[in-house]
Amino acid sequence: MDESLQALLAELEQFGQENDAAITDRPRRMLNITRDTGEFLAVLIQATNAQRVLEIGTSNGYSTLWLAQAAQKVGGHVTTIEQSEFKLELAAKNFERSGLSDAITQLRGEAGGLLDSMLDANADLIFLDSKRSEYERWWPTIKRVLKKGGLLVVDNATSHADEMVPFMALVSGDAHVSACTVPVGNGQFLATLWG
């Protein structure tokens, strides 16, 4: 990773921490992933040669930059979904500064509706870091959009375990899925479709 991107990521980490410490209004908080989660995602993308990456929950683009720099190395692209206009604008500026804009497509809107419009088997890797109360409802569509052998990674598996348990049980109970939880960052729930 080049020095300018390293510096931008460090700046965004500090901004996210300071912003979230000062602001209690959830829509204005960044709620970024941890650095080790970013590193983990980057390794997963490169190890699986995930060229079509879908992120649900852009925020200010911190996680997207981790995904995009890894996807770019394997000739891939990231599509990221965000509903908040405020966060979309912050992310767009960060993408421009990063030099990774060509590797990122931003979609604005409600994730469930946007997922419904996507083609079958259209993503190699999906990173889910959004409104946890919607995950169970989105699961059939996520399963349709994710290619066989593709990987779903969901943040906050341990930090918000009470909210995540129903979704994790639903996915783990699917006969065509192998799943596990990895203690990286706030906990990552991983699931792959094999059947």
Rank of each mutant, 00 (worst) to 15 (best):
R97Y: 00
R97N: 09
R97S: 13
S98C: 05
G99M: 10
L100A: 10
S101P: 01
D102P: 01
D102L: 13
A103V: 08
A103Q: 07
A103K: 05
I104R: 14
I104V: 15
I104F: 12
T105I: 03
Q106G: 05
R108C: 14
R108E: 15
R108Y: 06
G109Q: 08
G109E: 12
E110A: 07
E110P: 09
E110H: 09
G112N: 14
G112Y: 09
L114Y: 04
L114I: 14
L115R: 08
L115H: 09
D116V: 04
S117H: 06
S117A: 14
M118H: 12
M118K: 13
L119R: 02
A121K: 02
N122W: 06
N122T: 10
A123N: 06
A123F: 02
D124E: 05
D124Y: 05
L125H: 11
I126V: 10
F127E: 02
L128G: 04
D129F: 06
D129S: 04
D129Q: 07
K131S: 07
K131H: 05
R132Q: 12
R132W: 13
R132P: 06
S133Q: 08
S133K: 07
E134S: 10
E134T: 07
Y135M: 05
Y135I: 01
Y135P: 10
Y135Q: 11
R137M: 06
W138G: 00
W139V: 00
P140Q: 02
I142V: 09
I142C: 03
I142S: 01
